[in-house]
Amino acid sequence: MIACLEFILWVFRFFMGACVFSFINVVICRLPRGESVVKGRSHCMECGHELAAKELIPLVSYIGLGGKCSQCGVHIPIRDFMVECTGGAAFVLCAVFYGIGKTGVISLRGLIVFLFLAVLMAVAVIDWDTRIIYDRFHMMIGILGVAAVWLFPEISLISRLIGLLIISVPMLVLAIAVPGAFGGGDIKLMAVCGWLLGWKANVFAMFAGLLTAGLYCGVMLAKKKLGRKDHFAFGPFLAIGLAIAAFCGEWIGNWYLSLL
């Protein structure tokens, strides 16, 4: 019986994460269109059909509708479903990695990291679609960084201050020297994330971002889907590195420094 209740609680945590990332889907869809993300009913972008409550259940509604709008039959992007799945997995991972708080759901440390991952998801997908990283996302991460000063005291203020500059300043210099090398949104993203995560994790995040971007670029060049002078959004790859760094960037940084 206890094991069954524990399983139900973990399923509940998964769906809590999926619900939050379902809202992130709304942000991803509406923000680039200039629509409010808090006003107005959710609707089909093709026919305008307002979604009923039964069509708004994360994951379940997508499966029940067969991935199509109930009115016009247009396909709902599988990406929406994957974003919600990622949210559920992220919440569970944060609960496992950072522990369960007094509420029995997640600790405050885990909540901060989960919200950070939610913002990164919005950054990654919107940047992929539009090559824009909105300043409001930098502000949100900055607010989380302020809260992290108290919740993650093991990351010193010196480490946070160095993290603020160690990646963003070289990126800025390179962007000035080579126009188009980095976007302003990428630079500001690494600055605020450096304050949140500390310099060791931020350096690792940049390395991971460059590695994954390089792999993507290599594959696209091999398939002749990208030219050598073509540009692509770097934000999604930075988001991947930052998400990994939120869990193990500091540990990897300490491990590497111990080898020197």
Score class of each variant (00 low, 15 high):
H138R: 01
V74H: 15
G142C: 07
M1I: 10
L211R: 05
R160L: 06
A239E: 06
V11H: 06
I76P: 01
F81Y: 15
G73E: 06
V60C: 10
L9T: 13
C72Y: 11
C47F: 08
L93K: 08
A148F: 02
M16H: 00
T212R: 03
A233W: 11
I126L: 04
P153C: 10
R109K: 15
L108P: 00
I143G: 03
I176H: 12
C47K: 06
I8S: 11
F21V: 07
R30A: 03
E55M: 11
C248A: 12
I76H: 06
P32C: 11
S107P: 11
H138C: 07
R160V: 03
C217H: 04
I176F: 14
V60K: 09
K188V: 01
R41D: 09
P170Y: 11
V11R: 03
Y256K: 07
E46V: 15
M190G: 00
G142P: 00
P77T: 14
C94G: 07
M45N: 07
I143F: 15
G235H: 10
G227L: 12
P153Q: 12
G209Y: 08
I158D: 04
F81H: 09
F182Y: 15
L161P: 00
G104T: 02
C248H: 05
S168G: 09
G104C: 01
S42W: 12
M140F: 14
V96M: 05
D135H: 13
H138V: 03
F247W: 05
L221K: 11
E250F: 10
V11T: 12
D135M: 04
L259A: 13
Q71H: 14
G64E: 05
V146G: 03
C85N: 12
V149T: 11
T130L: 01
M45Q: 12
K188Q: 00
F182Q: 09
A89S: 13
I155C: 01
K39C: 02
C19P: 00
C29I: 04
V173K: 00
D80W: 13
R136V: 07
K229T: 07
N25W: 10
K223Y: 03
G235R: 04
F116I: 01
V219K: 09
L259G: 04
Y98G: 05
G34P: 07
A243M: 11
F237N: 08
